[in-house]
């Protein structure tokens, strides 16, 4: 099984530690993982801003980079969702279809494809899970509070197996954090208010570390936490799953 590691543009530039943790974790799990050169972006920011048509170039680059792999795995639910959901703007050649079908968010890949939930990690902290919307409602990484389906959560299955980790329950289990890509600047007031409210929920429930499978949401929350000097840390779920004492 050949796996292509997809590192979203903002993680590559701003959060290399998340990319490193993802790579190391996959290697630890015995995956034959490659990092194709020349990755840019999945085109999500353009699509969500209404410029989907201009994103064709970046879609093509993406497919070109990953067409030879059995699976494409990335530590960002919303980017993977974009590949799966919105790459219909380019011609659906067999290569494009293959890439779209085989793109997986990291947690889902580990649980569904590798069939593992206990990764031998240990992280003795009180953790709050931020369930990012595109991963949750788009990729169905878990059941959503609005729907009356049987409850499950891919990320919780993984976190519950981390030694010493205490998963704190939140008052609003899956409310949006207000990042929303360009929404975060064009609707600044609401975006900030949503983020503050989400953070307060974690604080109220004694969380020490907020984690999640989408670092864009975490970047927004971290920006607020740092500005307001709140006693919370933000870590990508890959960093937690890759940690040991």
């Amino acid at each position: 099984m050949k796996v292509g590691l997809f590192i979203p543009c903002y993680i590559n530039q701003l959060y290399p530690q998340v990319a490193i943790a993802t790579l190391e974790l996959l290697e630890k799990l015995g995956v034959d993982v490659y990092y194709p050169k020349g990755q840019t972006c999945c085109g999500q920011p353009l699509g969500n801003s209404g410029y989907e048509g201009d994103a064709k170039g970046s879609c093509q680059v993406f497919v070109e980079n990953f067409k030879e792999y059995d699976y494409i795995v990335g530590p960002s639910g919303s980017c993977i969702y974009h590949v799966k959901k919105h790459f219909d703007i380019i011609e659906q050649t067999p290569e494009v279809v293959k890439v779209r079908n085989n793109a997986y968010e990291l947690c889902e890949f580990i649980v569904k494809i590798l069939g593992k939930t206990d990764l031998g990690a240990s992280f003795p902290h009180k953790v709050g899970l931020h369930k990012s919307c595109h991963g949750l409602r788009g990729l169905h990484l878990g059941s959503c509070s609005e729907r009356m389906d049987p409850p499950f959560s891919t990320e919780e299955d993984l976190l519950n197996n981390v030694k010493g980790l205490e998963l704190m329950s939140l008052t609003r289990k899956d409310e949006c954090c207000g990042f929303g890509g360009t929404f975060s600047v064009f609707e600044e007031a609401i975006s900030v208010k949503m983020g503050k409210d989400r953070i307060q929920d974690h604080l109220d429930n004694n969380v020490e570390v907020i984690t999640g499978a989408d670092h864009s949401c975490l970047m927004h929350l971290e920006g607020l936490i740092n500005r307001n000097k709140q006693p919370l840390r933000v870590m990508h779920i890959a960093e937690i799953l890759n940690s040991s004492i």
Partner: peptide, 21 residues
């Protein structure tokens, strides 16, 4: 910078992942 009105920007690391890799 509408981002920075109420939020800090991410702390910038010395290298990106491409360079690390």
């Amino acid at each position: 910078n509408a981002w920075g009105k109420a939020r800090e920007l991410p702390e910038i690391k010395n290298e990106n992942f491409d360079q690390w890799y």
